Amino acid sequence: MDAPIGHFDTALPAPDALGELTAPVAAAVRDWGGSVPADQIVYVDTDPQWADTAVFVQHYGQELLEKSANCVVVAGKRGGGTTLAACVVLSTTRVDVNGVVRRQLGARKASFASMDTATGESGMEYGGITPIGLPTGWPLLIDSAVVDLPYVLVGSGRRRGKLLVPGKAFAELPGAVVLEGLGAA
């Protein structure tokens, strides 16, 4: 199979690559119920040494820079409680944590979650967190620019490998809220 974007040696429909995914991501692909068929989500094998975005696009295709998204875990605090959420923005932007995220979560303070919290709570590897397979009940904030793309490159739950996901599929994920301006330049 050829990848819909980028230049990868190995590209498989995600349902055929469950063994390459972390348990929560594999379960989400196996139980997929969105309007986009699960086999349109593509797993591509990538080398972890090229995981950094700048190096990644040099190796796998410069066009991926505009078609890649980052998924980061944030913690919103209000009173004594903390709400974990995931944010998905294009890799050319930064998450507006202190503005859009804080307001959306109704938090007094919002910040990036620690690496231990992000990996421990998501069941995914740092640098590979993906919006597919996040814990039930987490808000999933997605920049509208991500949803508008035909295909978006995101993590696979591991540092090795990525997922190519039709943009509109992100809006159908559990807990998804599509927001304008979540990703700031």
Rank of each mutant, 00 (worst) to 15 (best):
A107Q: 00
T136S: 15
V29T: 01
S144N: 11
F8C: 09
A113Q: 06
V152C: 14
W50S: 14
A38I: 05
V178C: 11
V89K: 08
P131I: 11
V55Q: 13
M1V: 15
A185M: 14
T136H: 15
R102F: 10
R78K: 12
I41D: 01
L141V: 02
A145G: 08
P150S: 11
F170V: 02
P37M: 12
V89C: 06
D143H: 01
V44A: 11
W138N: 11
G76F: 14
P13Y: 01
A113T: 04
L164I: 12
A145M: 02
T117D: 12
L84R: 08
E20H: 14
P139H: 04
I41E: 00
N70I: 09
E121S: 13
V89E: 09
R108H: 01
T82F: 00
G6V: 09
Y60V: 07
V55L: 14
G6W: 05
A54G: 05
G80N: 11
A107I: 11
G155Y: 01
G181E: 02
R103K: 12
R94T: 02
S122V: 06
R159P: 14
E121G: 10
R103F: 01
W32H: 12
V178K: 14
D16V: 05
S144R: 15
G81M: 07
E172K: 05
I132F: 02
G34I: 12
I5P: 13
A171T: 03
Q40T: 10
L65K: 06
M115P: 07
L179F: 08
E63D: 13
P48E: 04
A171W: 06
K67E: 01
R78C: 13
S35P: 14
D45K: 15
E66N: 06
A54E: 06
K77T: 08
G155Q: 08
V72L: 15
T93S: 14
D16Q: 09
N98G: 12
G167A: 15
D52M: 08
F112D: 02
L153S: 02
E20M: 11
F56Y: 09
G123F: 02
I132T: 02
P150M: 07
E20C: 03
T22L: 10
C87V: 08
F112T: 02
T22F: 04
V146F: 03
K162M: 09
F112S: 03
A51P: 04
I41M: 09
G127R: 05
S35N: 13
I132K: 13
S114F: 01
P24A: 09
F56P: 08
A110W: 00
P24N: 02
D96H: 03
A27N: 01
